[in-house]
Design a protein around this nucleic acid. Structure first.
Lengths: 295, 295
DNA sequence: TCCATCTGATACCCTGAAAGCATTGATCGT
DNA sequence: ACGATCAATGCTTTCAGGGTATCAGATGGA
């Protein structure tokens, strides 16, 4: 038994006429009759009651017809789907992103891609930049949005946006109403920043900003999550330098200010060059289209 | 593409080794390799990444594996089920029965059959004897329990039980405490009985009982449903002759009495001789086993 | 570095499943 | 009774798919 035999059976079950069923199968009647006989023989089941005048389904044949319709449908679907998956029209894309990009490019990227490839299941995974790098290398992620940290072999990258850092503080903090803010003004401030092990690019940008002014920053707290940093600032435990896009939705007691010669960070979309997931390529393409509008 | 090809694919997907997969398919490696290449070619999809040292599934291949497992499973099921249906182990049996047998043989028959053939769906259909006869001929029922009405071509029959008729009446009715009850005692009673058009065997048994005593019964009401007859007797509108098995669960105000020379009716299990439903034969066999215990 | 070995791909041949054509046999309507 | 219709059967042919032998690329040990 084979799907071909099921198709023969279905043709006869639907037409109840050997000649016409054979025609539908693009063959002549005699071999078709033989195939039907063969099917019945191998199954050991009489599927049709027939004489030289009439053809009718047996009860077993009626049930088999339903089952065959099912099986053939699923069979076709499987063949169709594997093509769609291979072409990137269907499947799954594991997409990582850092919190620092969650409010800017990520929503846009996700929305555009979901519109372009509605049958690809986007698995979103918020991670720290370091975790993202590891998972991209390990193949646990297909693509990710993170800060550009320079050299990365076997990873392709698309520049999505360039973000300036701003400083955030409580509204009752002296700096909230001060003039220009640069490294010098921050000399004695308690700084809250993610550790280098978690967000190397961000931390090194902050460090460079201070060391360019000859200052050693007083980093008093190093929480791993961006969320936590903002909460600690809100409790008055210090100030923090965070990407501008995260400053739009601060809590009530917080405010942000621009920095003089503010450090810039590149937000990139990354994926392994040797990715086997065909869904990635259009994801990267959509990244490029975002780049054109955001830069 | 065919299920055979899917099986080849699955063998390779599970072993990730051409030689061993070919062996599992009981063939040599070269034609197996060709078949895999053919599958990939006809689908237009690369399912395996391979060199002379390693074989691995592509993402599309991984998805296809799941789909194939599904399809192959359903395929096997369909072939297995059609055999079960043809052997009467699975399927559907449309079973009609008259109310007059609902309290005696029908529950037993249904229970025994459900135990013997748990995968056959028993469709129960309570009908009047006349409806049952029509539906058996029309093929709307596969089998039915009804009164034996003598000659019935192209119907096979198994005698299930022989039921005596008893008379039912209100407890405050004079007959409830009278001596022997025969046609003579019923001469002036108002009789309630199903019309001949609905239950010919029953009605003719009642008529014969009276005419044997030279009596013409005073049939005052002719409801079609057995249920209604009992209700009308309860309201004091007359008395009725009903099968003994229905007398065990009369309402509070009713009682039943034996009749002298009570008429007997044969309860039979019937099915078309030329039935195409393979589930019927064991149903009839179980009927025969009930017959042995009940007679 | 070279060779033995493992593994998948290719070349070529051969068998049999399945298709085609011609015909038979059974059934129904005129 | 006869012709028309339709499924079944007999016989031939073809090609999909299997077998054997061999090649070619990769790996690991000497």
């Amino acid at each position: 038994m084979d799907t071909r035999h099921m198709r023969y059976f279905m043709a006869l079950a639907e037409t109840l006429h050997f000649g016409r069923a054979a025609e539908r199968m693009n063959m002549s009647q005699p071999p078709f009759s033989r195939q039907i006989a063969m099917i019945e023989h191998t199954l050991g089941v009489k599927l049709f009651e027939r004489n030289s005048r009439n053809v009718a389904l047996t009860p077993a044949g009626k049930h088999f017809m339903k089952d065959c319709r099912n099986v053939l449908g699923q069979f076709e679907d499987a063949c169709r789907d594997v093509r769609l998956i291979a072409s990137g029209m269907k499947g799954e894309l594991r997409f990582g992103f850092m919190m620092h990009a969650a409010h800017s490019v990520v929503p846009q990227l996700v929305q555009l891609y979901a519109e372009a490839r509605p049958d690809v299941r986007l698995v979103l995974d918020e991670r720290t930049p370091t975790e993202i790098d590891e998972m991209l290398v390990a193949g646990t992620l297909d693509a990710a949005v993170t800060f550009d940290c320079g050299y990365a072999p076997h990873l392709q990258a698309v520049l999505l946006a360039r973000e300036r850092l701003r400083i955030i503080m409580r509204k009752d903090h002296p700096l909230a109403t001060a003039g220009q803010i640069g490294p010098d003004e921050l000399r004695d401030e308690k700084i809250i920043a993610a550790p280098a092990a978690t967000a190397p690019a961000l931390r090194s940008a902050i460090n460079s900003y201070f060391s360019a002014g000859g200052i050693v920053p007083r980093v008093v707290l190093e929480p791993r999550l961006q969320h936590t940093i903002i909460q600690l600032v809100a409790k008055g435990l210090g100030v923090a330098l965070i990407p501008a896009s995260l400053c739009t939705e601060l809590g009530a007691g917080l405010t942000s200010r621009a920095l003089s010669d503010a450090p810039q960070l590149d937000v990139v979309l990354r994926a392994p060059i040797t990715t086997k997931n065909p869904a990635v390529s259009t994801f990267m393409e959509i990244g490029k289209s975002i780049q054109r509008t955001s830069l």
